[in-house]
Design a binder for these strands. Structure first.
Lengths: 260, 260
DNA sequence: CGTTTCCTTGACTGCCATCAAAAGTGGTGG
DNA sequence: CCACCACTTTTGATGGCAGTCAAGGAAACG
């Protein structure tokens, strides 16, 4: 529920893209059932036979170089993308040119679902480091799921998951102060690292202070100051973008420490 | 992308509700094709034959009294709801008990899609005035759409629309000041009124200043002050919850007037 | 008619944005 | 190797917007 001028990219000159195949000219094809990321991409209770069914779906793999867009706001919606490696930043542009980061995606996560509503992507997704993705043709996925209630439900859950994710961000943006925001961000990153089998207490952030700030609704200086405050409180060790969480529990309490 | 503690209602004691049929014991059933709201509920390019197909779907109508919940966070997800009349407030609860309004729904709009991801609703929907809704069994809708690519796509678009809506709210919460927020809110209400054939320049708000503030991420006093400021600037006439927009265009410029 | 809830307005405070400067980092080419 | 540049990050000083606390009035309710 916001002014149309904010949420619609429709005022932007349409950039229809029969996109020059960025990266690989010959696209590899892969099968989901043999992918080592399958529990991450499709964790919504998809069981054996349903995953097998997914193998009817052959999709393209593509490389995206650091700084390159995977898709842009206004691009025609064709694919949903699964990140195989690397990190992406999704951002929204307001009518006046302001831009805001709306999310980060790492290996095993999906992006691009926002394009379905309008037939065009509402956001721009940019690689923060060299990355590799699976491009899943949405039409094809729909065909496959016709007649497969399981798959159909799984796709629905994927979309709903995105809605729930944004719910959390709204809570954050609407009612938290700087320390709570950054703590929530770090805990979230930590948990996603953990799910992937990487260390939940020590990781390398791929995004700048400014990008974190844009995502969390605060200025880059405030992000930096808040990192420093956490270090002083003994919660973190920070070396530029390398983070080590020293006291996860106290960090978690920070999020809920609305004094009032 | 936020801490799990924020977005998950899973820490809340499960409130499974074989809900006492609130309202009507005997549920009326209706057909979509004869509903005067059908262009509002399902505006995503659903054409004649597809709507006819919807008529295989018979669903319950239910009345909800002002102040009563339609569903609560944690309730098992069964239905998506179409508002026939009245207004609903959706709200999220953080782990520490803080609550935040995540949206308002008026006649012709859908709600409840957030429950799909977890099989339980993530938010609570409460009637702000006496209301009437259609409860559409999600399982049944899925069955119907199996074998109907059109209907399937339409459902997908509905979900995506919700994602895009939340995008707009994120932009608002992340980067606007008080005047911009309230202006964006009023413009949004105005447009939704217009779509429904009601006056876009004069309407009655069903929610309190506190609820508007919660939704926009500001305190009720600030909402009140900002209303007063708009009145002084000659943008609005305000009589409690009755609003008349005097200068829509200048109000729209307010939203984009990031001085910067 | 009393009680409660909602709204408005005022005074003060505090958090974070803004402006500014300096140090650190990485890449490029002489 | 080092000079040079562009960019990121950190830290300090200051100011403004909105939060907080408080009080009074208006409307709604039982």
């Amino acid at each position: 529920m916001t002014a149309a001028t904010l949420s619609q990219p429709s005022t932007v000159p349409v950039q229809f893209t029969p996109r020059p195949a960025r990266g690989a000219p010959a696209t590899l094809t892969t099968a989901c059932s043999s992918c080592h990321l399958k529990e991450l991409c499709l964790p919504c209770g998809m069981s054996g036979p349903t995953v097998d069914r997914l193998d009817g779906l052959r999709f393209a793999r593509r490389r995206v170089k650091a700084g390159q867009p995977l898709y842009r706001a206004g691009d025609a919606f064709q694919f949903i993308y699964a990140v195989r490696s690397g990190t992406f930043r999704s951002s929204l542009a307001a009518a006046d040119g302001r831009e805001q980061v709306s999310g980060f995606s790492i290996a095993g996560e999906l992006l691009g679902l926002d394009g379905l509503a309008q037939g065009r992507h509402a956001s721009t997704a940019t690689a923060l480091e060299d990355a590799e993705i699976c491009a899943i043709p949405y039409d094809h996925l729909m065909e496959l799921s016709t007649g497969s209630p399981d798959l159909q439900k799984a796709v629905g859950r994927l979309m709903s998951r995105e809605i729930v994710r944004e719910h959390g961000l709204m809570l954050l943006l609407g009612s938290m102060n700087a320390e709570e925001r950054l703590a929530a961000f770090l805990l979230n990153v930590s948990q996603r690292m953990k799910v992937r089998g990487w260390s939940p207490s020590e990781f390398h952030l791929r995004m700048s202070r400014a990008e974190i700030g844009s995502y969390l609704g605060m200025k880059l200086e405030t992000v930096s100051r808040t990192f420093s405050a956490f270090v002083q409180q003994g919660l973190l060790e920070v070396d530029k973008r390398h983070i080590r969480i020293l006291d996860l529990e106290r960090l978690a309490r920070t999020v809920e420490s609305r004094v009032h």
